[in-house]
Amino acid sequence: MINADFIVDVGISHYLILSAILFSLGMIGVLLRKNAIVMLMSIELMLNAVNLSFITFSKYNSHIDGQIMVFFVMTIAAAEAAVGLALIVSIFKRYKEVNIRFFEHLKG
């Protein structure tokens, strides 16, 4: 499957595969890391991977709506980061650590 054409002719599938790899790396980060901040960063990475595929489809379909979706995703990501960091700061103030297991005290 991998041949010279695959290396030279960069097309839609290359970008999509790159996006998939980045998404999976982000997913591994969320699943494996214990530090809540690193988990948040991995989520940002996953969102970025999705953005990349949006832009790719936007380009190869010659349709601008993909780029608009990216704006929406960015807004949501920024909002998510703000709330997540506020939560982490408040956990840190109490336990002096940001391990994800302290988040189980969030109930109630």
């Binding site: 709330v83 506020a86 939560l87 700061v89 408040s90 956990i91 103030k93 109490r94 336990y95 005290h105 969030l106 109630g108």
Partner: peptide, 8 residues
Amino acid sequence: LARSKGGT
């Protein structure tokens, strides 16, 4: 959230 004294 950030203004709270710590913990939820």
